[in-house]
Design a protein around this nucleic acid. Structure first.
Lengths: 340, 340
DNA sequence: TTGTATGCGTTATCAT
DNA sequence: ATGATAACGCATACAA
């Protein structure tokens, strides 16, 4: 063994603390984990020894020995997208006071990358897993079933979850916005979304749009639907293509990311009145949409709550307080502003 | 179910693989880690057995035994701020192909929270640590020195790093923008920054502003300096307070977050010409600043490179390829646009 | 190329 | 209330 006992860089072990405090390692272990199981005198001696040797427990060893883990894995499809930040913070908030550690990874909207990350997390023997994506490879299904690790999906209210779901319905939210625009008098409602290919949420939103139009007795005009990549530039391009198209819309629902803001900036550049020339609606209550001129009508989604409730139901299962495969619908809300 | 020892939920161990492949656990270990040290036939039998039992290695045990770790810890001061996303992605990108796992945590701009996170990471025996913040409690200094874990700080080019630094100089960047505005003819340059209290970067930017004015022979007017919390609303409030103040600036440098965008939106609302009534400059090249009307002059910072180079120098040290306490200045760049 | 013995640092279990 | 002993699952060191 590469022995360098005591030198700089050597972490002190529990038995260093033990011998300094004149007790056994078991007593140290108890003193640290459940001080009430140890006498006052010993507790103090141990605390003193811990400080003296600068002891930091080794959770690798602890977790291995106890066969449980204090790490929760979280996989988001893209950290560059600040939409996920509130969810992550919701999770952090709950975990912070429970002694669990959060391990975050980014799948970059890629199934196979997600698969590797899931395997890496299982290799670390995480206590539970939160996945924002709701589409997974077969291998992910197999691994998770085998490992029997509690899992929460948060991306959308899937009908066939891996385990638990805490989310809102992208389908219903999208449909609700279409009905809202219809109520306001708009009849030719354009729709722009992110590519549905690697994105369940986007697919659900498209389906919600179609369903709402059908229910309202409006035709689904292919010329009014667009798929665009993420980014402000995309929103700008989309609104131009629709408004300058053959049969322009009177309103455009940009159901993704910052597309709506990009569209508005383009309208500003071109001097198009919003909502005079075209009304604009967005899909997420990001700060920017409230501050632009005019402020943009949008959907408020339970992003932070998804993180908080998700973490809570996960912990309930991990700690054995619950055994159900919970399914939570956190709903959504329409924010009417001046852009419509 | 018989023939499935352990039942559902039991992770298979290496010796399950070993017995199924008819070899010892050591051979399995080698077959997985360095296939070249094992015969072709055995390699195949092991691979088959791994799939058959759905084996996922236990890195807790592996890391404990080998006394090394495959986890890198990263602490950012606030995940809600998407400015850190490029850095995180830079890190991920480098780690992805090296077999290291990234563990991210959020200190919420709080020294004490950071201290607890550092301890938690050390408890997981991370191989290395990346910290965006550059101000730390005494306990953090002590713990890190004891643990002798390689550390990279990325927030600003500190003069007294814990270990290594990979960043740019907030001081110099700030000063450069002031000189740039001066070159453009502006003489009364207002300055808005985030509160310096818990934020080294903000302190450096303030110092850079003062230093540049002094070098240019301009007075530092307290009435032209403001500290505001993060957010678009703050930028809006700041620009109004300055422009409607006793002796208004001809340009405002909003050196933080999305303050500049908030200021611009407020100008749009009020019909103030930018740069006619007041010129605006920002501190970070976020996408939005390029798309608003008019586009906003700003600084481009090496956010992604900080992540990439940071991860690289960290790995160099972890893997023993280097032993130096590297200090890397990645520089910055001014992006002149129509707002000035 | 492969196997055996042993230890990594902690906790579960059973004693005292 | 405290201690002794045996795991936890894997990798190092050495032997064959």
């Amino acid at each position: 063994m590469p022995g360098d006992p005591g030198g700089p860089g050597a972490n002190s072990r529990m038995r260093d603390v033990a011998s300094r405090a004149g007790v056994s390692t078991m007593t140290v272990s108890r003193a640290l984990k459940d001080p009430s199981k140890v006498s006052e005198a010993v507790r103090l001696r141990v605390a003193e020894a811990v400080r003296a040797v600068g002891y930091v427990p080794n959770r690798l060893a602890g977790n291995l020995s106890s066969m449980r883990s204090n790490v929760i894995g979280l996989i988001v499809p893209g950290l560059e997208n600040s939409l996920f930040a509130p969810t992550i913070q919701g999770v952090s908030e709950v975990l912070r006071r429970t002694g669990y550690q959060l391990m975050i990874a980014d799948s970059l909207y890629d199934d196979t990358a997600e698969e590797q990350l899931v395997e890496a997390f299982l290799a670390q023997r995480v206590a539970g897993l939160m996945l924002h994506d709701t589409h997974h490879t077969r291998a992910v299904h197999d691994m998770l079933r085998r490992a029997a690790v509690p899992v929460v999906e948060t991306g959308t209210l899937v009908s066939d979850p891996l385990d638990m779901v805490v989310s809102y319905s992208n389908h219903d939210a999208s449909a609700a916005m279409v009905r809202h625009l219809h109520r306001l008098g708009y009849r030719r409602i354009g729709f722009v979304s992110l590519p549905a290919a690697n994105n369940d949420r986007s697919r659900d939103r498209q389906a919600g749009y179609r369903a709402a139009l059908a229910a309202l007795g409006l035709p689904v005009e292919p010329g009014l639907m667009l798929e665009m990549p993420s980014g402000l530039a995309s929103g700008a391009e989309a609104v131009v293509r629709l408004v300058e198209g053959a049969s322009p819309p009177d309103a455009v629902f940009l159901a993704g990311d910052v597309l709506a803001a990009g569209a508005l900036f383009e309208c500003q550049r071109r001097g198009w009145a919003v909502p005079g020339r075209v009304a604009l609606a967005a899909f997420d209550d990001i700060d920017m949409l409230r501050h632009v001129v005019p402020p943009i009508t949008t959907l408020r989604l339970p992003r932070a709550a998804m993180g908080r409730r998700g973490a809570e139901v996960l912990l309930d299962r991990i700690e054995g307080r619950s055994t159900e495969r919970v399914r939570v619908d956190l709903g959504f809300e329409i924010i009417q502003r001046e852009s419509t």
